[in-house]
Design a protein around this nucleic acid. Structure first.
Length: 211
DNA sequence: ACAACGATACCCT
DNA sequence: GGGTATCGTTGTT
């Protein structure tokens, strides 16, 4: 792992889902696969709330797919969609069924490997949930991974890399039809690794890093 | 056993 | 902006 990296404790995830989604921005996500390390800074997330959120996979109760969502906060929930995968962090306490979708990171480590996985330029490696999982070799095998204690996926702080001074933008979630009006998508303003067309807002440019 | 669907991405116009 | 490849999950025969 990068020297100086400090993993988040499980208690970080056992807060309100919206708070976790906001707090994850600017933190570092690292995937360790054998000797290969890939990762970067989280720049876009979406919150999927417990109860009454019709867009949330847990909305209709426990199934084989979503059972990990009902574990206590700090586990990884991976699911398949359109022949691709998406990765989420489970939030709040046991049986809440809430999670935060990680939609994009700014690449920092393992760029060669991610380019091999994606066959794309750096700006297209991790700017979307399916692309991110393809770049990081995340699939259903990682469903249920313990983020606070496992050895394959890490989320934490990294001095001089984790973003501290940026403008946070809030928009409705994208790519869904149910509850599509709720303002639960969060991203780092003007960061070029955010997915979609509307990746910036008005105002002065914010902190970016060298890649 | 089967058909419909989707928190996507890519290619086209 | 629109069409669709592609496949695991889900609900329905």
């Amino acid at each position: 792992l990068p020297i100086g990296f400090k993993r988040l404790p499980g208690s970080f995830y056992r807060n309100s889902t919206e708070k976790v989604a906001r707090s994850l921005l600017g933190l570092v996500l690292v995937r360790v696969d054998g000797a290969t390390v890939c990762g970067g800074v989280i720049v876009e997330t979406e919150a999927y709330l417990p109860a009454d959120d019709r867009a949330c996979h847990s909305h209709r109760g426990v199934t084989a797919r979503n059972q990990v969502m009902f574990k206590t906060g700090g586990h990884l929930y991976v699911y398949a969609i359109h022949a691709k995968f998406c990765m989420n962090v489970v939030t709040e306490t046991k049986n809440r069924g809430s999670a935060v979708l990680i939609r994009a990171i700014q690449p920092l480590w393992g760029i060669k490997r991610m380019q091999r996985n994606r066959s794309a330029e750096i700006g297209q490696l991790t700017n979307g949930p399916g692309k991110l999982c393809q770049a990081l070799d995340v699939d259903l095998e990682l469903n249920g991974e313990n983020l606070a204690g496992g050895d394959r996926v890490f989320i934490g702080r990294f001095p001089n890399r984790s973003l501290s001074d940026y403008k946070l933008v809030v928009t409705p979630r994208i790519g869904i039809s149910q509850a599509a009006d709720l303002p639960l998508r969060f991203f780092v303003d003007r960061n070029k690794f955010v997915s979609g067309r509307r990746r910036d807002h008005s105002g002065p440019a914010n902190q970016q890093f060298e890649v």
